[in-house]
């Protein structure tokens, strides 16, 4: 029953009424539904991790921590190590994030800060959203037939003129880190751009007005006021983009060369965890599958750590710029 000790003594002219029984029922029904939704997601994730763990258990027991520091993957010798894959995953995703993130945030600024007419903005946005809709195999094919042939002479020139620089210390002989990271950057870009655009758009008009009112130039307004204000939203976009890059499989499997190799050079072939899983799984025997499950767990752990780090940075900026606790 609704507990309302006030109606009796309130002014008899008031139109205020307590919520009806039905209102309260709807309220609690909605609350339980929301709890249920949240809980089922948590359970689903827990179940996936558990199931992976069970499958990977034999491999974890045999290889232990050496699996993470090992550098060879040789199924016939039952020798499994994923350090090159971990390196390749993080390195390629980081390069992709730097390139895709810069362009993504740039595009968001371009679209929201009055550089283009509203109609053009819609067109631009649609094109960028289209980028997100292109299947990753198509990106892979485009990378093989268009990007790599284009990159080879550029890489050759860079290597010859700036070969002392670690990033250009080898020659590009086909698939490699550079084409893979560039394609990844294109795939990361729509995520970063869309979320950053929203972050900029959420800033109340009065903030922009206040900055212009102080006599700031457009760039000062953008760099000193709008960017810090939107920073937590932009960070969310970057974290999501990075997560996407870490898990991307198909295009990478086609472009990165799938060679267990730890190198700073952008032109060396490399490998990533997701790509290892995709290319090795179809022909793997039981022992190797267990090792692959272990690798999947490692990828999951990396994603988790990246997301937690992102969350921490995001909360720091929120505290710093928005005063939120």
């Amino acid at each position: 029953m609704i507990f309302d000790p006030f109606k009796a003594s309130a002014s008899d002219k008031t139109l205020s009424m307590p919520p009806s029984q039905a209102d309260f029922l709807r309220d609690s029904a909605f609350r339980y539904l929301a709890y249920f939704g949240a809980l089922s997601i948590v359970l689903l994730v827990a179940y996936i991790v558990f199931e992976l763990g069970v499958q990977a258990l034999p491999a974890i027991q045999t290889h232990g921590f050496g699996f993470i520091t090992g550098t060879t993957w040789n199924a016939s010798e039952e020798e499994f190590g994923v350090l090159p894959e971990i390196w390749g995953t993080l390195y390629s995703s980081l390069i992709a994030l730097i390139i895709g993130g810069t362009f993504g945030v740039g595009i968001a600024i371009f679209l929201t800060q009055g550089f283009v007419h509203a109609k053009m903005e819609v067109t631009f946005r649609t094109i960028i959203e289209l980028l997100a809709a292109i299947p990753s195999v198509v990106y892979g094919l485009w990378g093989i037939y268009v990007l790599i042939p284009m990159l080879v002479p550029v890489a050759q020139w860079l290597h010859e003129t700036l070969g002392w620089f670690p990033l250009f210390s080898t020659e590009l002989g086909g698939p490699g880190l550079a084409p893979a990271a560039l394609v990844l950057a294109i795939m990361v870009l729509p995520t970063v751009a869309a979320i950053s655009t929203d972050a900029f758009r959420r800033i109340p008009y009065k903030v922009k007005e206040a900055a212009y009112g102080m006599g700031a130039t457009k760039w000062e307004v953008i760099l000193k006021v709008m960017l810090p204000t939107a920073s937590s939203g932009i960070l969310a976009g970057l974290v999501l983009g990075f997560g996407r890059a870490l898990g991307e499989t198909m295009a990478l499997a086609m472009l990165i060369g799938n060679v267990n190799n730890i190198s700073l050079s952008l032109f060396d072939p490399a490998n990533t965890l997701a790509s290892l899983l995709a290319s090795t799984f179809p022909e793997a025997g039981q022992i190797e599958i267990q090792a692959l499950m272990y690798a999947a767990l490692v990828l999951l752990a990396i994603t988790l750590v990246v997301n937690l780090l992102g969350l921490a940075v995001q909360q720091y900026t929120m505290r710093k710029f928005e005063g939120k606790k």
């Binding site: 507990f3 309302d4 000790p5 006030f6 309130a10 205020s16 009424m17 307590p18």
Partner: peptide, 20 residues
């Protein structure tokens, strides 16, 4: 104390308080 009842009483739903 609003009229005869403490609005911070656990039994009181804040929604009702805000209606009055």
């Amino acid at each position: 104390q609003y009229h005869d009842h403490d609005i911070y009483d656990k039994k009181v739903d804040p929604v009702i308080v805000r209606r009055y």
